[in-house]
Each structure stands twice: as C-alpha cells, then as structure tokens.
Amino acid sequence: MLTTSAGSDGRRKWLPVVCFVILLFVIAFGVGTAVVSPAFAVDQQLSGKAADEFADEFDDEYADADNVIADPLEAYNRVVFTFNDRLYFWLLKPVARGYGMVVPEPLRIGIRNFFHNLSAPIRLLNCLLQGKFSAFGGELSRFLLNSTAGVVGLMDPATYDGMKSYDEDFSQTLGFYGVGHGFYLVWPFFGPSSARGTVGLVADYFTEPLTWIFRDEMETGLAVTGGKTVNQVSLSLGVYEDMIKSVLDPYVAVRNAYYQNQLKKVQE
C-alpha cells in the first residue's frame, strides 16, 4: 500500500490507457460478432458445434430417405430407360417442339384441359373406391362445370374458381388399401412404373373414355393418344432436360422421383 511518488505517477499514466484499450476491445467484440454476414460464411457454418448440433437434432428428418423402391430388374430397367431417353430426345421432343411452334400455347393448354376433363371417369371411380366422397363430389362438380361453362373441357373455369382437383387412379387406390409397389418397372413409351403401377395402368385403360370411343378404330385411337402425348410434352419441354443436367445418375433420379411422387399421391 505504500507507494512512492514515482510509482503513483507511473500508474496514473498507463491506467487510463489500459481502460481505454479494454473499452475498445469490448466494443469491437460486441459489434464484430453481430456483423458477420451469414451469406458466404460456409466456413463458419462448418466449424464449431453449430453444424453438428443441427445434425443430431434433425438428422431423423431424412432417415427414411434410404427407404427405396425395390429394383431387382435394374439391369433390364436401365436398358428400357435408355431407350425411352433416346425416344424422347430423338423423336418426341423434336415433334413436340415443332408442334409447339405451330400451335399457339393457349390452344395447347385448351387441348390439355380437354383431355384432362375427358378422363374424369377414372378419377371419379377411384375416389369412390377409396371412399373419398367429398373428393368425388369435388371432381364431379369440376367435370360438370368444365364440360358446360368450360366448353367441353377446353377451358378450366373450375380451377379459376378455386375448385380443388383430386387426381386419383387405380394404382393409388391399390396403394390406399396397403398394396405396395412390389418392384420398379420401366415400360417402353410409358416410362417409370411398378408392379402395382402396371396393374393400375391396365385398369385405367379400361376406365378411360378414349378407349371406348375409339374401340372400333384402334389406329385412330392410337393417333389421338399420340397427339395427346405430343401436346402434353410441348407444354413441359425442358423439365426432363433440367433434371438430367442437375443429377449424377438420371436413372436413379427418375426412379426416386417416381417413388416419392407416388407416395405423395397416395397420401392425399
């Protein structure tokens, strides 16, 4: 406690400086940590507890992602997939593009609406089979409105009015009753399907009005179906291409997308 005059003078000099430095340090620390922009902070995100913290809490979210559709016929499926891929790029796409350049988009949308409306019986039947009566009512109202005010389905006033659409088919009906997919199966032309999906396709074929309209003129029926497909493709050009570009293995990507989409449809 005894201080000499020389010592106290010395203390008087550096103490304020030290306090000032401490103050600066505190301000810098306080402000500095708040200013780091998360935008490019990949390094920050990877370091420390933060990254693993999220991992423990939320990894369960995608734990079932490794649950996939069985694919014992993969070798065969890959060949058909490649065939369909070539078919798309060498035949379907050029035709759809040419068609799209000649036929204006609103008309093509109208044509799509027409065919969608026409296949209402498939949806109606499968809503009933699943006991989804309000969905049945909804689809029926849509069908009636679009067929009348919508001029045989060319227009879609139902969607405009906010009426919900219920896209049910026989494969989903089977799924609803607990029938699994069985295994993945790729059909030439038709694309990705499954054991269950195939049964669904066959059942839908018999409930599709187009089938019965052209029963005696199979060739015309085939041509009409072809036209329907070209029209559909012309409205969604680029979707398949994007997917191919962004993935490492298109076959796996399409298989997975098919499976995920099917799961979602059955859930609805």
């Binding site: 992602a65 490492l248 293995d249 298989r255 995920q260 989409n261 979602k264």
Partner: peptide, 15 residues
C-alpha cells in the same frame, strides 16, 4: 409435387 431435392440427391449419393 412431392419430390424432395434432398431425398432425390441422397438416393443418388448413397447409391
């Protein structure tokens, strides 16, 4: 349309 980007890539990467 029910297809998750993460699930899709995850299936490819794990394969």
């Amino acid at each position: 349309e029910g297809v998750s980007l993460v699930r899709n890539y995850r299936s490819q990467f794990s394969s």
